[in-house]
Design a protein around this nucleic acid. Structure first.
Length: 137
RNA sequence: GCGGAGGGCCGGAUGGCCGCUGCUGUGGGGGCGACCCUGCGGGAGAGGAAAGUCCGGACUCCAAAAAGCAACGGUGCCGGGUAACGCCCGGGCGGGGAUCGGCGGGGUAACCCGCCGGGAACCCGACGGAAAGCGCCACAGAAAACAGACCGCCAGCCGUCAGGUCGGGCAACCGAAACCGGCGGCAGGUAAGGAUGAAAAGGUGGGGUAAGAGCCCACCGCGCCGCUGGCAACAGGGGCGGCAUGGCAAGCCCCACCGGGAGCAAUGCCAAAUAGGGACCGCGUGCCUGCUGGCAACAACAGGCGGGGCCGCUUUUGCCCCAGCAGGUCCGGGUUGGCAGCUAGAGCUGUCCGGGUAACCGGGCGGUAAGAGGAAUGGUCAUCGAACCGGGGCGCGUGCCCUGGGGAACAGAAUCCGGCUUACAGGCCCUCCGCGCGC
RNA sequence: GCGGGUAUGGUGAAAAGGUAUCACGGCAGCUUCCCAAGCUUUAGUUACGGGUUCGAUUCCCGUUACCCGCU
């Protein structure tokens, strides 16, 4: 058994972020929040669709994240698996790359969300966030 | 060894890092509040179907649900099990079933085909009633349901013909007569036969008859009545009846039994907020006694009588109401927060003992047990890994060995249980029956 | 999660246990100089799988898909 830190891509990403994670992420639960985000700018990648909306003042605090999958993704097992993977990349990426006062919505896609390599999925999210942030500047 | 047929179990494994949701111990913090958040330690966290929502219950509300009636729905061989069931077990009856026996046909033969009978393990069956009633049975066919009589068959009577017959004649032919026969008609007998059809009024064989027919006889079937066995469904055998009851009840229906309705988005509590609002319907504007207030009318309270209401009707008990209110329907407004219900129950299961053919029941000892709430139970990496694909070797062959790729079915608790049904990669185990061979 | 309903040509609808019908549309043909209109013709697993029945779109059971209601 070789220790895991010998592997190059395992240690690089998950160095410190979990400590910072606790302060911001909360979950979107209301249908209206999802509908507002659906009208906001979006980026489409093979594994997911990312929507980002800047909240108006006094609405809520911190970064909020919503995850959703339609019936097109598959049965309950497939949908739950897709949502779990999306939640995991959000947990790893958003504390570092997310912005205060934003609602993010991740939408799963059929087949690909569950099968795409995890590191690719994470890189897709970082790239998409950068794109959206550039666009709103 | 060949062939056939059942049942049960499992449902990828190990480890590293990083997470999620309850519980518990301890510490800290927040909210007006119901309550909530959080650090550290400990321990727990999807299935055999969690699925479909097809049955049965627990539980909650509809005030309680005792009895009867009606309506509606369900179940349906018998017995047992169970909290209960449309489930399970055992039995009965019917059907299927490898093989076997008999008969017939084809073939030189091996064998093949058809019919009938018995029938292994086992499989299938909504399997009460069609002589209580109603309804339906298209097309075809003479006829489709108290049978009837289209064709046919048959003796009789009448008419007709002179083919057979009889007489004469060598013969051609002549004559006689309605006996046989043909044709037509009349009034009957008969249901054996008749293209059909899913189904044709007991079947097969013999006797019998003018022709026929359960008209008679034998066997089979059917019905009725005893007997024997069985708790029963039913089976066996006996006698009697000459046959009456075509099918469909997953058509209406009859019989027996069961069922009040809605469902955890039930329901209860708390917080916050609002207009604690309005319209219509229904019932109704009581009587007596006591006490208090009042000059009195009367009002409030308590008790009795009477009346009304309680999601079909009646009765009983009970509860509520009597001056505006409990009840019903609708319109409008506010909230979309928190907690409980919420997981230990007819629990599940291992083993032993006892009862039972079994399902199952009783007892002892032990093990085990998620409770989320836009919904946790995972993400990722590594190693090992079944199916499957390719190459090589061994072997007569099923196959075995080496090696490279490959990479795990159906599927995610949502109040909880007992079943059923449906989906499912692959693996493991056990049992039964027939035939053949060996001992 | 709980409860209820529907399925028939491409679309919308009928049909009593007995030949699957109607309208619009599509394809092809006739007609016309061409188009329109008109006429003729054509295409169904009655969602799927079983059962009852002589016979099923219809009756019964199971499956699938879709739709509706309930805090």
């Amino acid at each position: 058994m070789t220790p895991p830190q010998a592997l190059p891509n395992g240690t690089a990403a998950d160095g410190t972020p979990p400590a910072a994670a606790s302060l911001c992420l909360s979950t979107l639960t209301k249908r209206v929040d999802f509908l507002r985000a659906a009208r906001a700018p979006r980026v489409v990648t093979p594994g997911f669709v990312l929507q980002m909306r800047a909240r108006s003042a006094g609405e809520a605090e911190g970064i909020r994240i919503g995850v959703t999958c339609s019936k097109k993704v598959g049965n309950a097992v497939a949908r739950n698996r897709a949502k779990r993977r999306l939640r995991e990349i959000a947990r790893l990426v958003l504390p570092e790359h997310g912005r205060e006062g934003m609602d993010y919505v991740l939408i799963g896609r059929a087949k690909v969300t569950a099968s795409r390599a995890f590191c690719d999925l994470r890189a897709d999210l970082i790239r998409s966030l950068a794109k959206l942030h550039d666009r709103t500047q």
